[in-house]
Design a protein around this nucleic acid. Structure first.
Lengths: 337, 337
DNA sequence: TGCCGTCAGCTAATCGTTTCGCCAGCCACA
DNA sequence: TGTGGCTGGCGAAACGATTAGCTGACGGCA
């Protein structure tokens, strides 16, 4: 690979001049400029980002660490993030912590060495790994995405999970259901907990209680939701409606319903939160709350870039996006019997 | 951020000693070693990858450029690639060309500057952009994934698209169908073309012809497939069975079928190729050919790493994975009427 | 005691850029 | 013509690591 020195020699100018031409960072006379550009073309010179980054102290790299890349939801997030950071001239490094705190810790350590300029993090749990916290002084700008925890120095972009669950639950209540069950997400994750609390709040507001027999804790995974739904719905005494904590789980639940020979919505109404590509293909069309993923990611990247450019140490900003209920035909009014 | 010099000063040793301790690259007496490690901990020192890479001439970065990150199929590919390259100590840079040749060209130029050590490419079309081809001398190792074109210097990992389409089509033929239609992928892409050719070959082998009225060209997109299916199936004279070129398109086709009030498989049998997460949730369960994505990605990364480590200039290797037919209940025997 | 081999640890060159500070030449003004 | 400001272009010092090559102390052997 040709270096800037090779170009300088070929064009019979100094390396400083080559640099000036390549970066348009200073006026260079047309004659020299032409010589330099010829040499660049001749040698196929492309400046080494590595050297450039070392010198400039930047890397033009932004990283995103998601909690579960196998979940199509995060596939969409990564897709949107790639487009958003590319628009600002960054490349995107993608990492997957796979809901594993140790893996998350290792990844953050590795990224620190990579000198990424910014980091979008979908945290595995309620706190940063100790290693990341104890980093004093200048730390890399970071935005929490989707899941948040209270660290008032960090920016965060989330949806109103509490309200989303409330919306979906209210919809079921308004249809006349009172025996409402839930396939929950993990309660140690902010989204999982908030969605369960939102559901409980909605029930409580109408004087209904959440029957613990109708609730299954879970993980944000299709297979786990499938088993949970089978065990919950397999018993003779079962709810008439179900709130499912996310889209991936909803796929599992719908599969379980079909495998059990139940009909949706005749035997059971189902509502869920969050939209993933596969949910659109479900029959019946799922009633769910949706999030503006692309807008959310754009906002996260905006916040991140702002922090990278203006490295001020102001308080963390939290942007909460509203969710909207999309009515499908997976819910029916409650009928006695 | 503390540098190796800060650590050396704090531990009262030379930078060479610090480097030796940090990298375990030479014997250092226990006493000094302890002093160094203390200083490292004290200062929170992490060696700068950027400087290290400049010196070593490596970047520990592998890039993947996919043609459509919004397609969950590539979401799975990226997920598997992330895991695979992480196992080799690399970080993964993800780029999305969005089926756009210009974007692909820009991305490849940017990656060249990033000094990625290797590249997994799902090409947009049948050839490398000129810019990438004309790069003489040492080029970055590259493996084509999924889609290939004949450049006998490049490694490639693909499935046997021809056979996959043949398999699915034969299945439909064996059920007694003769009026078989197709929602195709783009024909300028190797996978799209090979699948159509496989289908035609299967029909021809049984003495059947592909009725051009029953064929819709397309793009690998859900919405495009939806429209194509609506227009194809909306006419009174329609096929009794349909081969759909990929999973994302199958989602669109199934949605169209349902919106048209048709029943699958009673009114129409559907078979497709490739597996994406959302397809599992479809009802009826889709009959399709599946690919071992994870194995394929692992193989691609293995080939890539091999080329990175042993930069020999031998011929490109092509690994073709077989696909397997997974029978669901989206196909029924043909009944006159 | 003197010589030599061994080896822990240090000094300094190097990777490929950017960029600060300097120099020389030119023009303008007095 | 002398002086001073302006500016195109250059030389060389960073950036932060790795590593080749050197130094000096120490122990063993004659």
């Amino acid at each position: 690979m040709a270096t800037i020195r090779d170009v300088a020699r070929a064009a019979e100018v100094s390396v400083a001049t080559v640099s000036a031409v390549v970066n348009d960072s200073a006026y260079v006379s047309p004659a020299l400029r032409a010589r330099v550009l010829d040499a660049v073309r001749e040698l196929g010179f492309a400046p080494s980002q590595v050297a450039r980054n070392l010198r400039r102290g930047r890397s033009d790299l932004v990283a995103i660490v998601v909690a579960d890349l196998a979940n199509p939801f995060y596939g969409r997030v990564v897709c949107a993030a790639e487009a958003a950071v590319a628009g600002w001239g960054y490349s995107l490094v993608v990492c997957n912590s796979d809901e594993n705190p140790d893996a998350e810790k290792r990844i953050l350590a590795r990224l620190r060495m990579l000198h990424c300029e910014g980091l979008i993090l979908v945290p595995v749990s309620n706190a940063l790994p100790a290693a990341a916290r104890e980093t004093e002084g200048r730390r890399t700008p970071m935005v929490l995405f989707g899941r948040a925890f209270d660290d008032n120095r960090l920016d965060a972009v989330t949806i109103d999970n509490f309200a989303a669950a409330q919306q979906a639950t209210n919809y079921l209540i308004d249809l006349g259901h009172s025996r409402i069950g839930a396939i929950n997400g993990p309660l140690h994750v902010s989204t999982g907990r908030a969605r369960m609390e939102g559901m409980q709040a909605a029930l409580a507001a109408k004087g209904l209680a959440l029957d613990s027999r109708f609730v299954r804790p879970g993980e944000f995974r299709e297979d786990v939701a499938y088993s949970a739904a089978r065990s919950l719905l397999g018993q003779p005494d079962r709810p008439t409606a179900l709130y499912v904590a996310n889209g991936l789980m909803a796929l599992g639940v719908m599969r379980a319903i079909s495998d059990l020979g139940l009909r949706c919505p005749e035997d059971l109404s189902v509502a869920s939160t969050d939209n993933i590509p596969g949910v659109r293909g479900l029959k019946p069309v799922l009633t769910r709350t949706e999030h503006p993923i692309v807008d959310m990611v754009n906002e996260a990247v905006r916040l991140l870039v702002d922090r990278i450019k203006n490295a001020r140490d102001e308080e963390g900003r939290t942007v909460v996006f509203p969710s909207s209920l999309v009515v499908g035909d997976s819910c029916a009014p409650w009928k006695a019997g």
